[in-house]
Design a protein around this nucleic acid. Structure first.
Lengths: 329, 329
DNA sequence: GTGGCATTTGTTTACGTAAACATGCTAGCG
DNA sequence: CGCTAGCATGTTTACGTAAACAAATGCCAC
């Protein structure tokens, strides 16, 4: 910067003003400074700037894994929204969703240069109060318990699961089976609870929950078991990948979808419309989730208001060809 | 830091030494400093540290989009490897793969605090020489032309596509159709070229290339066209998602896979084994790609050697149930 | 014409850290 | 016993920037 100032024949402060587009600088001076900048190849040093201003223009994202469809889409949306707002994204992956790992991630993040944090860790470990997030660090949590302490952004899991279950009941199915996500996941729990409540409210007895782990393979395994049971006519899977696994198991056992068994998923991944048959599923608006995360985080960063409470993003039921009335009707 | 020093009754420099675990510090002094640190809740300021040392312990990743399977997996692997090496990841998404956008990303990145950059932009735009990466900034490029100027890490697209094509020829198919990725993509071009060469070397006439865009829908569209042509018995899709689209189109036209038509994909996404039928595909080792990216980048950062040239990661052909000899045999 | 105000530019300072250098102390050796 | 080597610790300084304050210039109103 000093070199630029020397070349342009001005003070370093004036260079700073030009670099930040601030204050009133004589147009002719500005031009001289800009010329000197490009001549020298000046690049502002973000470390020095951050040191001086205390702002990093960066947002940390803590994720358990990138390998699930939803997390990836959410991250994509967050990254896009953050970039538009002039922030960059610092990614902190944690290998295992354990308390210690998460704590380590927070520590690392607090040493990293971030103005705020988005946590995408679908797990109960956030419960424990002993997570010592650096005081005053703005946080938004995706897919967690609606703890009013933190700002939470999430899809309307409850409505989505209810819509899916109702659709199958309305088609005339006697009951609806459910392949859930893993025990530790909040969203899995909410989808399961909503499915259960919907059945109960309809006066239908709920079959036992089949617990999966989001993978196609876990869906496949449960599908093989369900295929044995000729009473099963409708299954609601907690995500599209498990729904895919279910359908594979049914195909292998010569059970036609939807003629013999109806299947509904959750997520609406891009591929779902090309499954065989195209999957009826609950569409999640991940872009909106990501956008809202950044929005709420920036509110906290700018205003330094804690701003707890949940923001809920609605879902849309997408009917394709994996659902039909039961055969006996 | 000054507060910690005051509480511990030592100088700031000693605190710094303890914080970095450097030099020889009297154990008793060290203990006092550590106690003071935790009492005050001291967190090192990364901006100041970066300003002083010129190192940020952060790696930038420039991606066109997160929404393709391969990019996501690569990013995941990069993030994991970087974290293990004590680096964090700064994500710079670009909305469109245009020259200007990429240039903007580089500029932003050069202002951001990164020690090196991984570029995952599968496009010819990297060709142009006018990309002004800050001089001396270590770079690794994934999936690009093997330009010796930069370090390149990539999957062995050529071998993968050759294996896939050969498998179908060896099964007795007269020829193999190909649904490629978009024109602008390097990996798409390499898979297509390798497919073409394999056919030519086998003395087989190549049908026209069907150009897709990686999406299931583009595969579906081409599949509808192919279904009209009863001569088609084998198709090699440049990724699994397009293979899925193909199979959907064939199903809808009552063409059985693999009895009427064999299909091979590329990527081996997690879902591919649960497609109907389970997809024969070329497995890519994304974890290895990510790991090698970080490895090569760190070599450059530490040794400041330019280190051009390509590192190739082998592929594995996974035979599942979407391939069989043609019906007429 | 002169006082006051706005506008532009310059000067000083501090952000938190670590390298370089300086100091003081202890132990070992002749 | 004195000298030196080596180690623990302290002092000074600089990294590049922007805020706060200061100064210079020009303009307007009375």
């Amino acid at each position: 910067m000093a070199d630029v100032a020397a070349v342009a024949g001005v003070s370093a402060q004036t260079v700073s003003r030009v670099a930040n587009g601030l204050n009133n600088v004589e147009p002719s001076t500005k031009e001289r400074v800009l010329a000197a900048m490009s001549q020298i190849g000046y690049r502002p040093n973000s470390a020095a700037r951050a040191l001086k201003t205390g702002r990093f223009n960066s947002i940390g994202v803590i994720m358990f894994t990138l390998s699930t469809f939803g997390n990836m889409r959410t991250l994509d949306a967050i990254a896009t929204a953050a970039t538009q707002a002039g922030y960059s994204i610092t990614l902190i992956p944690i290998a295992l969703p354990t308390q210690g790992q998460l704590l380590g991630a927070f520590t690392r993040l607090s040493e990293q240069a971030v103005d705020g944090v988005v946590v995408i860790v679908e797990s109960h470990i956030l419960d424990r109060a002993d997570i010592s997030l650096p005081t005053g660090m703005p946080v938004v949590i995706v897919d967690s318990d609606a703890d009013d302490t933190y700002a939470v952004v999430d899809t309307d899991q409850t409505a989505g699961a209810r819509d899916a279950t109702r659709l199958l009941l309305d088609l005339g199915h006697r009951t609806v089976w459910h392949v859930s996500g893993p025990e530790a996941s909040y969203s899995a729990a909410r989808r399961r609870d909503s499915w259960l409540r919907t059945l109960t409210e309809a006066g239908v007895e709920a079959p036992p929950v089949l617990v999966g782990d989001w993978t196609t393979n876990s869906g496949y395994q449960h599908g093989l078991a369900l295929a044995e049971n000729r009473d099963v006519t409708a299954v609601f899977a907690a995500n599209d990948q498990m729904a895919l696994g279910l359908m594979r198991a049914f195909h292998e056992n010569d059970l036609a979808v939807p003629e013999h068994i109806s299947v509904v998923g959750f997520d609406d991944m891009e591929e779902s419309s090309s499954f065989w048959p195209p999957l009826t599923t609950v569409h999640q608006d991940f872009s909106a989730v990501g956008r809202l995360c950044i929005e709420r985080l920036l509110t906290q960063i700018d205003g330094s208001r804690p701003s707890g409470g949940a923001t809920i993003v609605p879902t849309v039921l997408i009917e394709r060809q994996s659902t039909a009335p039961p055969r006996s009707i």
